[in-house]
Simulated assay, not measured.
Amino acid sequence: MPEISHEELLARIGRAYYLDNQSKVEISNEHGISRFQVARFLDEARARGIVHIEIRTPGRAAAIDTEALAAALGIRRIVVVATVGDDFQQRDLQAHAVADELMREARTGMTVGISWSRTLDLAARHVPELPKCNIVQLAGALPVPGGGNPLELIQRLGRVGGGRTWPMWAPLVVDSAATATGLRRQPEIADAMRKADSLDLAVVAIGAWAPNLSTVWDRVDNAVRRDGVDKGAVAECSGRLLAGDGTAVVAELDARILSVTVEQLQRTPKVIAVAQGAVRADAVRACIAAGIVHTLVMDESLAMALQEFSAGHGVSA
């Protein structure tokens, strides 16, 4: 048999498991790999969008009035997807919605900035076409298990749209402020960071400044985490920390980050933000207060938490 690509192998394994109901043992025997590799390849296929699983929960989304909630929160648009039990499925559902919003908002000649998260990495894979626009990487690399990397994301969107790209050839977090300052002087990095001054559209992910709710939190040491908490941080967006009232937190982390600034996002006319889970409700409200969210893509559990908060504080939603 002719040799197949890794992507084709992922598709075949996904088809055998999900459509043909073959067991992992049967698939491992057929392909000459271990059943543990089969499990890992199935996870990878879902994370990369090669396998897409959609589960709809009838009736639940009807309880959320997205227009009223958007008005209560003071933003332009809300998109709500179902809350499902599987983390890969959840990210994929939200990634599809983010991709749809990006294609909906992008226009020829725009400068579009996109940060990085596992959801945004998936979203880029679900964008089949874009008008010709410039694509700017808004945050340095922060590799995580089950995810791609920002450079691949930017290159993928650049190929789809056919415009110029401004990659940021740097990590998101470095070990010292001096290292970050030196990297910011590098011409390619400086160009990308300057290009973020003139964004027409940005796409970002919102994390909470707490364990397991921010990929940045999980990659820095306890001293950096504590410093952010002590200074009132509740939200993290592209490595930038925000307090509950939306003010930028100037913490030790801020000097070690290579990414778009809060001020640059505040000047961007349209920002699409994605967040997941009721536990990120405070973080989402902080980012909205900061003025860096115009369209919010989220799951039902987060939407319900925001709706209940608005109702409890006398705001109709």
Rank of each mutant, 00 (worst) to 15 (best):
residue 68 A to R: 02
residue 66 T to P: 05
residue 56 R to P: 02
residue 36 F to I: 15
residue 56 R to Q: 10
residue 73 L to Q: 02
residue 91 R to V: 03
residue 78 I to H: 07
residue 27 I to G: 08
residue 69 L to S: 03
residue 17 Y to Q: 08
residue 53 I to D: 03
residue 66 T to C: 12
residue 49 G to C: 09
residue 62 A to I: 11
residue 94 Q to F: 09
residue 30 E to T: 14
residue 57 T to G: 06
residue 83 T to A: 06
residue 89 Q to F: 13
residue 33 I to C: 10
residue 35 R to H: 15
residue 24 K to Y: 09
residue 84 V to S: 01
residue 42 L to C: 07
residue 41 F to G: 05
residue 93 L to Q: 03
residue 34 S to V: 06
residue 47 A to E: 08
residue 97 A to P: 01
residue 58 P to A: 07
residue 75 I to T: 05
residue 97 A to D: 09
residue 96 H to P: 00
residue 86 D to C: 07
residue 29 N to F: 08
residue 84 V to M: 01
residue 91 R to Q: 10
residue 30 E to P: 04
residue 73 L to Y: 01
residue 32 G to C: 11
residue 38 V to K: 00
residue 67 E to V: 13
residue 64 I to E: 03
residue 79 V to M: 08
residue 44 E to T: 08
residue 81 V to H: 01
residue 99 A to R: 05
residue 64 I to Q: 07
residue 17 Y to T: 02
residue 42 L to V: 07
residue 78 I to L: 13
residue 52 H to K: 14
residue 90 Q to E: 04
residue 98 V to R: 00
residue 83 T to W: 02
residue 21 N to F: 06
residue 23 S to D: 11
residue 43 D to F: 05
residue 43 D to S: 14
residue 52 H to M: 14
residue 96 H to S: 08
residue 50 I to M: 05
residue 36 F to K: 15
residue 93 L to P: 00
residue 72 A to C: 02
residue 84 V to A: 02
residue 43 D to P: 00
residue 43 D to K: 15
residue 34 S to Q: 12
residue 23 S to K: 04
residue 24 K to Q: 15
residue 89 Q to G: 06
residue 21 N to I: 11
residue 82 A to Y: 07
residue 42 L to W: 00
residue 23 S to G: 08
residue 54 E to R: 15
residue 57 T to A: 09
residue 74 G to F: 13
residue 97 A to Y: 01
residue 28 S to C: 01
residue 86 D to F: 03
residue 22 Q to D: 12
residue 80 V to I: 09
residue 53 I to G: 11
residue 38 V to A: 07
residue 42 L to P: 00
residue 98 V to L: 04
residue 24 K to C: 15
residue 91 R to Y: 05
residue 76 R to K: 12
residue 53 I to M: 11
residue 65 D to I: 08
residue 56 R to A: 12
residue 29 N to T: 15
residue 53 I to P: 03
residue 19 L to A: 12
residue 86 D to K: 03
residue 65 D to H: 05
residue 62 A to D: 12
residue 68 A to V: 02
residue 34 S to Y: 01
residue 88 F to Q: 08
residue 59 G to Q: 08
residue 42 L to G: 00
residue 97 A to F: 00
residue 71 A to F: 00
residue 49 G to P: 09
residue 87 D to G: 13
residue 27 I to Q: 07
residue 49 G to K: 04
residue 33 I to D: 12
residue 51 V to H: 01
residue 63 A to W: 08
residue 86 D to V: 10
residue 26 E to I: 09
residue 17 Y to K: 08
residue 77 R to N: 06
residue 68 A to C: 09
residue 60 R to K: 14
residue 46 R to W: 04
residue 82 A to W: 10
residue 44 E to A: 12
residue 69 L to T: 07
residue 81 V to Y: 00
residue 92 D to C: 05
residue 89 Q to T: 14
residue 71 A to T: 09
residue 44 E to P: 03
residue 80 V to H: 04
residue 36 F to Y: 15
residue 49 G to W: 00
residue 61 A to L: 15
residue 52 H to R: 11
residue 68 A to I: 02
residue 49 G to T: 01
residue 26 E to K: 10
residue 97 A to L: 05
residue 88 F to P: 00
residue 61 A to F: 05
residue 37 Q to S: 15
residue 49 G to N: 02
residue 22 Q to A: 14
